Simulated scan of single mutants.
Amino acid sequence: MAKIAIVGSCITRDLWPLREAAPPGLLYVSRTSLASLLSQPVDGYAPQSGPPPDLTRYQHMATQADLLKTGLTQLLAHRPTHLIFDFIDERFDLLRLPTGALITHSWELESGGYLDDPALAGATAIPRLSGACERLWRESVVQLAGLLSCTVLRNATIILHSARWAKRQIAPGGTTLPLQGDPHIWDGRPADLAKHNQMLARYESHFLQTIPQAQVIAAQPEHQLADPAHRWGLSPFHYVPGYYDDILAALDKQGAKIAA
């Protein structure tokens, strides 16, 4: 069986029944940006032994990995046969610390109270849709390309799970209608769906120009629909079942299959 690593979001994770632990052969690195993943660790941050009251153990582990920059170490130790990227978690702003370290301003980071840690004092926001954020992200892709060529990751099949925020949702009877409600990064942080999709197109283009060996997989257009019945609720990136079936079939063709 394949050994799969995901650097991405729930759109890839939800292909397998993940909850608090991954099935054997699967590593999931989430709630991070490539710019944050490849940044220096947060100086002076002391890991907490357990999650804050409002977060699960996995959410806590993912947030701490972004602060301590252990995601790359995990990837190298996992020695994946297939390394899948999706960029849906690239919707969060970045924060820059006075030391120069970058972190991802995820819902978990804010809700878990991590921003109150003295090690994160003085953080300044870099809005996701800003030119500064895009430059940092593009630079990180160049850095990633170097790592893919000179580490054990060079042996992995690189896969880009191409995705966009859904503009329409499924309705009763199999009909579709425009996505209901304004999308949010999280409650209280509205997002511009069109601008995020334009950004994703630019990100994917740069990624493929820089890492041309990447294999691209995508769902059929008719399945790129939001699903109100999705287990995580209605969202532009919580899709209908056919979406996940398409992606699993595409991964199977790449030899990326593991036991659930």
Rank of each mutant, 00 (worst) to 15 (best):
M61K: 09
L177F: 13
R19Q: 09
P190R: 04
V42G: 09
D117A: 13
D182T: 15
A219R: 05
A166G: 06
A229K: 13
D89K: 13
L75V: 06
R168V: 10
R154D: 14
L94H: 06
L27V: 06
V240M: 13
P190H: 03
A171L: 14
I258S: 00
A22F: 02
T73W: 09
Q74S: 12
P51L: 07
L38W: 06
P228H: 03
L144N: 08
A219V: 10
G25C: 13
A46V: 15
F207D: 00
I211S: 07
A166V: 12
S235L: 04
Q48V: 12
L26M: 14
P80L: 02
Y243L: 10
R135N: 15
Q224L: 14
I211M: 05
R168C: 11
D116G: 07
I88L: 07
L67R: 01
A132M: 10
L83C: 10
R31V: 01
V240N: 09
Y58W: 07
P41R: 08
I88M: 11
Y203L: 14
L83Q: 05
P41S: 01
I185A: 04
F87M: 00
L115F: 14
K195M: 13
A259G: 14
H78W: 02
P23L: 03
N197P: 05
F237H: 05
L76V: 15
Q169V: 12
A259N: 09
G255V: 08
P17Y: 07
V216S: 04
R164G: 15
M61A: 14
L34D: 09
G242E: 00
L200R: 02
Q198V: 14
G8K: 03
V216G: 00
A260Q: 13
L115V: 12
E110N: 01
E20D: 15
H82K: 04
Q74E: 08
I170G: 12
P221T: 08
P172R: 06
H78Y: 11
R189G: 05
G44R: 01
R135H: 06
G146V: 10
V29A: 09
A191L: 10
Q40F: 08
T99F: 07
L120M: 08
Q64Y: 08
R31K: 01
K3V: 11
L234D: 04
Q224Y: 10
A194K: 06
A21T: 15
R91S: 06
H230D: 05
R168E: 10
L26T: 04
T124K: 15
L109T: 10
L75I: 05
L129Q: 04
A145Q: 08
A35K: 00
M1I: 14
Y244A: 08
R231C: 08
C133S: 02
P23R: 08
G50L: 11
H60Q: 00
M61E: 14
